[in-house]
Protein backbone atom coordinates (compact mmCIF):
# COMPACT_ATOMS: atom_id res chain seq x y z
CA UNK A 1 0.00 0.00 0.00
CA UNK A 2 1.37 3.37 -0.99
CA UNK A 3 2.10 5.84 1.75
CA UNK A 4 -0.09 8.99 1.73
CA UNK A 5 1.55 12.00 0.23
CA UNK A 6 2.48 14.86 2.63
CA UNK A 7 0.21 17.18 0.82
CA UNK A 8 -2.76 14.89 1.05
CA UNK A 9 -2.02 14.31 4.68
CA UNK A 10 -1.96 18.04 5.33
CA UNK A 11 -5.20 18.50 3.51
CA UNK A 12 -6.79 15.76 5.55
CA UNK A 13 -5.65 17.35 8.77
CA UNK A 14 -6.89 20.73 7.63
CA UNK A 15 -10.22 19.18 6.65
CA UNK A 16 -10.51 17.45 9.99
CA UNK A 17 -9.67 20.73 11.74
CA UNK A 18 -12.25 22.58 9.77
CA UNK A 19 -14.79 19.99 10.62
CA UNK A 20 -13.91 20.25 14.23
CA UNK A 21 -13.93 24.00 14.00
CA UNK A 22 -17.37 24.04 12.48
CA UNK A 23 -18.52 22.06 15.49
CA UNK A 24 -16.90 24.45 17.92
CA UNK A 25 -18.96 24.95 20.88
CA UNK A 26 -20.64 21.71 20.24
CA UNK A 27 -19.68 18.56 22.25
CA UNK A 28 -16.91 16.23 20.86
CA UNK A 29 -18.33 12.97 19.40
CA UNK A 30 -15.63 10.90 21.11
CA UNK A 31 -13.99 11.33 24.38
CA UNK A 32 -10.81 9.94 25.91
CA UNK A 33 -11.84 7.47 28.57
CA UNK A 34 -9.74 6.16 31.38
CA UNK A 35 -10.13 4.28 34.65
CA UNK A 36 -11.71 6.09 37.54
CA UNK A 37 -8.55 5.57 39.60
CA UNK A 38 -6.58 7.59 37.11
CA UNK A 39 -6.39 11.06 38.65
CA UNK A 40 -5.51 12.84 35.42
CA UNK A 41 -8.11 15.47 34.58
CA UNK A 42 -7.03 16.63 31.16
CA UNK A 43 -4.59 15.57 28.55
CA UNK A 44 -2.91 17.42 25.76
CA UNK A 45 -2.71 16.33 22.13
CA UNK A 46 0.97 15.75 22.46
CA UNK A 47 0.50 13.65 25.56
CA UNK A 48 -2.20 11.73 23.77
CA UNK A 49 0.17 11.14 20.85
CA UNK A 50 2.85 9.89 23.17
CA UNK A 51 0.40 7.66 24.96
CA UNK A 52 -0.61 5.98 21.70
CA UNK A 53 2.94 5.58 20.40
CA UNK A 54 4.54 4.25 23.53
CA UNK A 55 6.16 7.52 24.58
CA UNK A 56 4.38 7.49 27.97
CA UNK A 57 4.42 4.13 29.66
CA UNK A 58 3.13 4.98 33.13
CA UNK A 59 0.47 7.28 34.63
CA UNK A 60 1.23 9.59 37.44
CA UNK A 61 -0.73 7.28 39.66
CA UNK A 62 1.80 4.60 38.94
CA UNK A 63 -0.46 2.53 36.78
CA UNK A 64 1.08 1.14 33.55
CA UNK A 65 -0.34 2.73 30.47
CA UNK A 66 -2.51 0.33 28.52
CA UNK A 67 -3.81 1.64 25.21
CA UNK A 68 -7.04 0.34 23.75
CA UNK A 69 -7.78 0.76 20.02
CA UNK A 70 -10.13 -0.45 17.35
CA UNK A 71 -7.64 -1.49 14.60
CA UNK A 72 -9.85 -0.71 11.69
CA UNK A 73 -11.04 2.28 9.80
CA UNK A 74 -13.88 3.16 12.24
CA UNK A 75 -14.96 6.56 13.50
CA UNK A 76 -13.25 6.25 16.82
CA UNK A 77 -9.92 5.42 15.19
CA UNK A 78 -10.34 8.08 12.54
CA UNK A 79 -11.10 10.63 15.23
CA UNK A 80 -8.02 9.62 17.18
CA UNK A 81 -5.81 9.74 14.08
CA UNK A 82 -7.20 13.15 13.29
CA UNK A 83 -6.47 14.34 16.77
CA UNK A 84 -2.94 13.12 16.41
CA UNK A 85 -2.59 14.63 12.96
CA UNK A 86 -2.10 11.35 11.03
CA UNK A 87 -4.18 8.98 9.02
CA UNK A 88 -5.67 5.87 10.51
CA UNK A 89 -3.25 3.72 8.61
CA UNK A 90 -0.33 5.75 9.76
CA UNK A 91 -1.52 5.51 13.30
CA UNK A 92 -1.96 1.77 13.20
CA UNK A 93 1.42 1.26 11.43
CA UNK A 94 3.07 3.45 13.98
CA UNK A 95 1.56 1.48 16.79
CA UNK A 96 2.59 -1.82 15.13
CA UNK A 97 6.14 -0.60 14.66
CA UNK A 98 6.38 0.58 18.24
CA UNK A 99 5.00 -2.64 19.57
CA UNK A 100 7.32 -4.63 17.25
CA UNK A 101 10.23 -2.63 18.47
CA UNK A 102 9.16 -3.19 22.05
CA UNK A 103 8.66 0.55 22.62
CA UNK A 104 5.12 0.05 23.81
CA UNK A 105 2.85 -2.62 25.05
CA UNK A 106 0.52 -4.24 22.59
CA UNK A 107 -2.74 -2.20 22.61
CA UNK A 108 -5.91 -3.89 23.67
CA UNK A 109 -7.79 -4.60 20.48
CA UNK A 110 -11.32 -3.29 20.85
CA UNK A 111 -14.32 -3.51 18.56
CA UNK A 112 -16.56 -0.73 19.80
CA UNK A 113 -17.04 2.13 22.24
CA UNK A 114 -18.69 -0.26 24.64
CA UNK A 115 -15.55 -2.39 24.56
CA UNK A 116 -13.63 0.79 25.26
CA UNK A 117 -15.71 1.64 28.29
CA UNK A 118 -15.49 -1.90 29.61
CA UNK A 119 -11.75 -1.85 29.01
CA UNK A 120 -11.41 1.44 30.89
CA UNK A 121 -13.44 0.35 33.93
CA UNK A 122 -11.43 -2.91 34.20
CA UNK A 123 -7.86 -1.71 33.72
CA UNK A 124 -6.44 1.06 35.98
CA UNK A 125 -3.98 2.10 33.26
CA UNK A 126 -6.44 1.93 30.40
CA UNK A 127 -6.91 4.71 27.91
CA UNK A 128 -9.07 4.64 24.78
CA UNK A 129 -11.62 6.60 22.80
CA UNK A 130 -15.33 6.00 23.25
CA UNK A 131 -18.52 7.51 22.06
CA UNK A 132 -18.94 10.67 24.06
CA UNK A 133 -22.61 10.07 24.31
CA UNK A 134 -22.23 6.76 25.94
CA UNK A 135 -22.89 6.62 29.63
CA UNK A 136 -19.79 5.99 31.63
CA UNK A 137 -19.90 3.73 34.59
CA UNK A 138 -18.55 4.75 37.91
CA UNK A 139 -15.31 2.92 37.35
CA UNK A 140 -14.53 4.96 34.22
CA UNK A 141 -14.38 8.58 33.43
CA UNK A 142 -13.68 10.85 30.50
CA UNK A 143 -10.57 12.95 30.26
CA UNK A 144 -10.67 16.29 28.62
CA UNK A 145 -8.30 16.97 25.72
CA UNK A 146 -6.65 20.30 25.89
Amino acid sequence: MAHPQPLARSLAVVALGCALATDAGAEDPFSVVCNKTNEISAISINELRRLFTGGIKQWDSGAVVRVGIIPSDVAETKYLAALLGVTTTELLSRIQQQVFKGEMRRPAVLRSSADCIAFARSDPGAVCLADARAALPLEARAVAVR
Binding site: M1, P71, L92, S93, Q96, Q97, V99, F100, G102
Partner: peptide, 18 residues
Amino acid sequence: QMLASALFAPLAPGDATL
Protein backbone atom coordinates in the same frame (compact mmCIF):
# COMPACT_ATOMS: atom_id res chain seq x y z
CA GLN B 1 6.43 -13.44 18.93
CA MET B 2 7.24 -9.80 18.48
CA LEU B 3 5.32 -9.75 15.24
CA ALA B 4 2.38 -11.54 16.72
CA SER B 5 2.15 -8.88 19.36
CA ALA B 6 2.47 -6.12 16.89
CA LEU B 7 0.10 -7.20 14.15
CA PHE B 8 -3.56 -6.49 14.33
CA ALA B 9 -4.20 -8.56 11.21
CA PRO B 10 -2.32 -11.03 8.93
CA LEU B 11 0.49 -9.63 6.90
CA ALA B 12 -0.69 -8.50 3.55
CA PRO B 13 1.31 -8.14 0.35
CA GLY B 14 2.69 -4.66 -0.04
CA ASP B 15 2.60 -3.90 3.67
CA ALA B 16 6.00 -2.34 4.25
CA THR B 17 5.26 -1.28 7.79
CA LEU B 18 7.79 -3.69 9.26
